[in-house]
Design a protein around this nucleic acid. Structure first.
Length: 547
RNA sequence: GCGCCCGUAGCUCAGUAGGAUAGAGCAACAGACUUCUAAUCUGUGGGUCAGAGGUUCGAAUCCUCUCGGGCGCGCCA
């Protein structure tokens, strides 16, 4: 809808370029005003042009308005300091809707004019333990964003980076060996850095079935590490799959080492003069690119740091030639952003092509009381446990009712609740109700699937609002893609549900003494149903026909 | 100490690429089921947008400072 209005304005504005004497249009907005008196849509273009051209905005608005003619608008007004307010011609909108209804699904699946190749990397959890609830949030945001970008016609690759090369994996191996010895009756200690979670005992039981000696030799540690990693990775993939998150690629840090890419990357940085030696370690001059301090890439003992392989990984990404890269990281990694961007710049790539989304912490609650978690002590609630208890839909929806950079309190009892407190039910209930009305209509002999697209009898405020919201759906998808804010979709659906439930309570869809009205409303419901379906599909949340 | 994020109604939060009188839900109170699902709806009350300056036609939104909270500041990953 907004795009249509923009098109109308701009196609009419071309003629005015010389008259108003401007080169390029400012970044103006089309918005839905909060107040009915200000029309159905409104734009600030005249005020922006005004300050740019140092002319009275109202004069400019006047010239613009005089030059716009379109059957979409009943009237166009100039208000306040220079707002242009558009009042839609509702009968023309109904006509528009009628023409649209045959291809309505296509309308809800708009395609971008310039498809891009996008790489989106998310979750990327260490394969040293099961996923926890915070990973679920990242997984939801990433998968929803990826799906929306894909549906807009972009070529999207979803990727999971496996940190399987460093000391954490080694510590997992050691932890398994210790637990094995413990299972044999030996008394063992666990120093800092080892994994204490109960799942390690399960891993140890499995491991000891196939192996007999648990001395911490390099060979055994590697064996146990590999064994543990593979099983844990299996858990992770399994959890993600049940969460409807499927990656195109799993890229292992170790494979980047083995291919020699880490060494080649370090060589390249060295050739460019961005490395130096200090305290017998090799440092990268990230301060030259805006970082607070320089960072080590090769340790005193000759091992490469995690950062070194991460640079190589990002080089690898850029070499694959995407137009745009998205990383979704937990907020505890924010200190890492600058150094990665520094490295990308140092390698000669355009760091603006990479955007890093920070996802804030999730605190788990049960009926208002916080559930304490400590990863070190192995005392944490896994994604699997919560998923089994509350289900995929509730979790995914809840994760998207906050913007990604605000912390989220996740209350298990709330997500299980079947009331308005729980937004997913509110939205799903709308869907169930729509289906219920359509069912009853069929029972009463209305051939819902085949009725002609007739909307003429719609004129209530609720109906107008629903129509404008439905017609705004494509705008919403572009907004989400542009701003990387998938939570806007949940808010859209909640808002839609509000309008719908209110409408539902105040009016009847099926009016046996007024066929035309009934058909008009059933037609609207059909479009609404498809819209809600589409929204829930993009969120990967179930759309139940009955509740 | 430095860096990032946050501070909006009693509570949980939207709104932040500057826009017109700041919005929802919950909680509180008062109402609506012989009618398409009351898992819903209607109404009432509730605000110094943490505070102070600044930028301008206009600031919750941008800038500076102060206060409060979270997270990070390894040759861990």
């Amino acid at each position: 809808m907004r795009r249509q209005i923009k098109e109308i304005i701009e196609s009419n504005l071309i003629n005015l370029k010389d008259k108003l004497n401007f080169e390029t249009l400012p970044d103006y907005e089309i918005e839905i005003p909060g107040k009915k008196d200000y029309g159905d849509f409104s734009t600030n273009i005249a005020m922006l042009l005004g300050s740019k051209l140092r002319k009275n905005p109202r004069e400019i608005a006047k010239i613009i308005v005089e030059n716009i003619s379109s059957p979409f608008f009943e009237k166009i007004e100039i208000a306040g300091p220079g707002f242009i307010n558009f009042f839609l011609n509702f009968s023309h909108i109904l006509e528009y809707l009628k023409n649209l209804s045959g291809s309505f699904r296509n309308f809800l699946e708009p395609k971008t004019e310039k498809p891009k190749k996008i790489l989106i990397e998310y979750v990327s959890a260490n394969p040293t333990g099961p996923l926890h609830i915070g990973h679920g949030r990242g997984a939801t945001i990433g998968s929803t964003l990826a799906l929306i970008l894909k549906e807009l016609g972009n070529e999207v690759i979803e990727e999971f980076y496996i940190n399987d090369a460093g000391s954490q994996i080694r510590n997992l191996g050691i932890s398994i060996l210790r637990r094995c010895r413990e299972l044999q009756g030996e008394k063992v200690e666990f120093e800092e850095g080892l994994y204490l979670g109960e799942y390690v005992i399960d891993l140890a039981k499995e491991f000891s079935k196939e192996n007999g000696f648990f001395g911490e030799t390099e060979e055994n540690i590697e064996k146990a590490s590999d064994f543990g990693k593979n099983i844990v990775l299996g858990w992770i993939k399994n959890d993600l799959r049940d969460f409807e998150v499927v990656f195109d690629n799993y890229i292992s840090e170790r494979s980047i080492y083995n291919s020699g890419e880490v060494d080649r990357t370090i060589e390249k940085l060295k050739d460019k003069g961005y490395l130096y030696e200090k305290d017998s370690a090799i440092w990268f001059k990230s301060t030259e690119f805006g970082d607070d301090k320089d960072r080590v890439v090769i340790k005193e003992n000759g091992e490469k740091t995690y950062f070194a392989s991460d640079i190589a990984y990002h080089k690898n990404k850029f070499e694959r030639g995407f137009d745009y890269y998205v990383n979704i990281w937990g907020a505890d990694h924010h200190g890492y952003v600058k150094r990665v961007l520094s490295a990308i710049k140092a390698l000669g790539y355009d760091e603006k092509k990479l955007s890093i989304l920070m996802v804030q912490m999730v605190s788990l609650f049960r009926a208002g009381r916080q559930v304490t978690m400590s990863k070190r002590a192995g005392d944490f609630i896994t994604l699997r446990e919560v998923l089994d208890e509350v289900g995929k839909s509730g979790m995914r929806f809840m994760f998207l009712t906050r913007k990604n950079d605000s912390p989220l309190d996740f209350d298990i009892e709330l997500v299980k609740q079947k009331t308005t407190d729980n937004p997913v039910f509110y939205v799903q209930y709308m869907y169930a109700r729509i289906n219920s009305v359509l069912r009853v209509a069929k029972e009463k002999g209305i051939d819902v699937d085949k009725i002609e697209p007739y909307f003429n009898r719609l004129d209530l405020d609720e109906e107008k609002e629903l129509i404008y919201q439905i017609l705004s759906f494509p705008d919403l998808l572009f907004d989400i893609a542009e701003r990387s804010e998938p939570h806007l979709l949940s808010y859209y659906l909640i808002n839609l549900a509000q309008i719908f439930h209110s409408y539902y309570n105040a009016h009847r869809f099926i009016n046996e003494d007024d066929t035309e009205l009934t058909i008009s409303r059933i037609n609207l419901l059909k479009l609404l149903k498809i819209t809600v379906e589409r929204g829930l599909y993009l969120l990967k949340v179930d759309a139940p026909e009955q509740m």
